[in-house]
Design a binder for these strands. Structure first.
Ligand SMILES: [Zn+2]
Ligand SMILES: [Zn+2]
Ligand SMILES: [Zn+2]
Ligand SMILES: [Zn+2]
Lengths: 152, 152
DNA sequence: TCCTAGTATGTTATTACATAACACCCTATA
DNA sequence: TATAGGGTGTTATGTAATAACATACTAGGA
């Protein structure tokens, strides 16, 4: 049986390959491995869980290997880092450079991506009013997702 | 000579005392010490710099002491934690519970607080559109502050 | 062919961030 | 004077991230 999650993952990997080729970057084994694990996960993962997981059934994987892969994938926009709790999540839009907000459910810990075009303009203006030139923006939230609201 | 920074700090301490009394909480020595150090700092500080600083001229101060004080001060809204780089900054509005965005300058590392009433409503709606009930929001930015833009 | 520059990984060790667990102290109140 | 709640001190540990250096692969030029 092939789950939709698996299909989504294959898709993500293909898009990553394509994106790397276009950018002239190598989609190497450790990068693929890290992206696969993240894509297969229901929830954002901590770096050291990733390290353990990547080391299953094979040679041990050390922190720098995984952190380097994460840096790479984050730069390409294939993975997002959630600053609030130092976790990483595969992007389900494969390489949008546009900023998105990440909302994490307090119950099930799943992350929901939400675009925020409007918001970034407003914040840029608000920053500009104080003479601040905004270059990078982090928007994250906590709350309750739809499923968990139903269940409660 | 009394600088404006020092005046601001005295003010902040007084407000903190008042806030604690109203809430029935104790404004104890370590809490005061941590707030004083943060209030005196030009830039947000890392926890371990705070720990070193707090230990200067006296008995050594250990991590739990400072982290407990930080938790306390953050809950009261007297201090903000910047998630992006795990730093802490004294709030210059003394205990607003309202959310603010924190913009950090890439050059001088100073933080600028910006309120964002509008934005939270928009994001709440955007989240709601995906069935997500937003409870807490983190908005942070990076860029260049006014002073540094002048200097450049 | 050989050299070299650029990119990427492997490995060891260390630094930085944060909390668990327990003992002790103080103070209010029953 | 017991005892419960809140707070601190201390030891030890857990968790997140990177420095530094060695090694490997590839592409392009002498
Ligand atoms: Zn995304
Ligand atoms: Zn949920
Ligand atoms: Zn503030
Ligand atoms: Zn600046």
């Amino acid at each position: 049986m092939v789950t939709s999650k698996e299909v989504q993952m294959q898709d993500l990997i293909r898009q990553a390959e394509a994106l790397c080729q276009r950018s002239g970057m190598a989609f190497t084994a450790p990068r693929r491995r890290v992206l696969e694990i993240l894509a297969a996960s229901e929830t954002p993962m901590k770096a050291y869980d990733l390290i353990s997981k990547a080391g299953e059934g094979g040679q041990a994987t050390k922190p720098p290997t995984v952190y380097r892969a994460l840096d790479f994938l984050c730069q390409l926009g294939l993975v997002h880092r959630i600053e609030q709790d130092a976790t990483f999540v595969a992007c389900n839009h494969a390489g949008h450079a546009q900023p998105v907000a990440l909302f994490v459910c307090n119950s099930c810990l799943k992350a929901t991506e939400v675009a925020y075009d409007e918001v970034s303009h407003i914040l840029e203006k608000a920053a500009a009013a104080k003479g601040f030139n905004l270059q990078r923006l982090v928007v994250e939230g906590r709350g309750q997702c739809q499923e968990c609201a139903m269940a409660a």
